[in-house]
């Protein structure tokens, strides 16, 4: 069952997979809580998706179809590299279509196409601790989570409002899961935050270097922190995608010349392609 000779299915040995699987089950049972796990040294560098890769390796099987995206795109170098890793070590089928995938590993985006029941979204997480910039000590933040003492985060967001007139956090925007745990959604733009709420898919988060796994089960409340007088809002663009014409997707700004020329295109390449196909079919 091996793709690359000499290594086990999906690279990790069985004992490691079991350890990760046990951590994932506990993570699902305690939504938003970061489960410590014995993260292994992977053949890819820390910070480059080792947490997501370990979660995917523990979850994936021969019946799965894997999609890997980075910044919403299937063809960025790191996404290509990770997809190849699994094609090689697990011989697993891959796809670029969100609708065809059973497991989607992502860095920094949630696909535009709504996910469905049975799909698993695996996030690569650099820093899992939402309170880290407020309190660098793990011993302290652990206590804060135990007591659900999240006042410091509210103060920080409120200071933003006092200073800038708005909350100046645009990505990795903190959320409260199931009304209990403060959670970092990984550096997705806050544009994607609402997609986490009551999502039919299972969302798993892996932080390899920091050795933490956490989860949001399907149909779970995920609330972006806000205030009554400053409700949470997402980014909007005045433009539509220059390629597919999408007006409601997250757009990347592309610099076209050195005289201020800009164009905007979908960050989600699969969404952009399917929108184009739909548009062409309609014409």
């Amino acid at each position: 069952m091996t793709g690359a000779t000499g290594y086990n299915f999906a690279y990790l040995d069985e004992q490691t997979k079991r350890m990760i699987r046990r951590a994932i089950l506990k993570a699902v049972a305690i939504p938003g809580y970061q489960v410590p796990f014995g993260s292994r040294e992977m053949p890819l560098p820390y910070g480059w998706g080792t947490g997501g890769i370990q979660v995917t390796a523990a979850v994936i099987g021969p019946d799965d179809r894997l999609k890997v995206i980075d910044q919403g795109a299937d063809d960025t170098t790191n996404a290509v590299s990770i997809r190849r890793f699994f094609a090689r070590t697990a011989g697993v089928a891959t796809t670029e279509r969100t609708t065809e995938a059973t497991v989607i590993q992502t860095r920094h985006r949630i696909p535009e196409t709504p996910l469905v029941e049975g799909q698993i979204l695996v996030y690569q997480v650099p820093i899992p601790e939402p309170l880290r910039w407020l309190e660098p000590r793990e011993t302290e933040t652990r206590k804060m989570h135990a007591l659900a003492d999240y006042g410091a985060m509210h103060v920080k967001l409120y200071e933003d409002i006092a200073r800038f007139g708005r909350i100046a956090t645009t990505y990795d925007y903190p959320v409260l899961v199931n009304g209990r745990y403060l959670m970092r959604p990984s550096p997705i733009p806050k544009f994607d935050n609402p997609k986490m709420h009551m999502n039919p898919a299972l969302q798993l988060f892996g932080a390899g270097r920091e050795k933490r796994i956490y989860a949001v089960p399907p149909y779970t409340a995920v609330k972006s922190l806000d205030f009554e007088d400053h409700p949470f809002e997402v980014q909007r663009w005045d433009q539509a995608c220059a390629i597919c014409g999408s007006a409601d997707s997250f757009l990347d700004e592309v610099v076209t010349d050195d005289r201020g020329g800009r164009m905007y295109v979908c960050s989600d390449t699969d969404h952009c392609t399917s929108q184009q196909t739909r548009k062409e079919a309609a014409e």
Binding site: Y46, G47, D70, Q71, G72, R109, T170, Y171, P187, Q235
Partner: peptide, 24 residues
Amino acid sequence: VEASGFVQHLKLPHYVDFQSELEL
């Protein structure tokens, strides 16, 4: 190994986060 990976991961694309910051 941890430090080197995380410092150098800044080479990976951060288009989406940067776009969010630009807009802000």
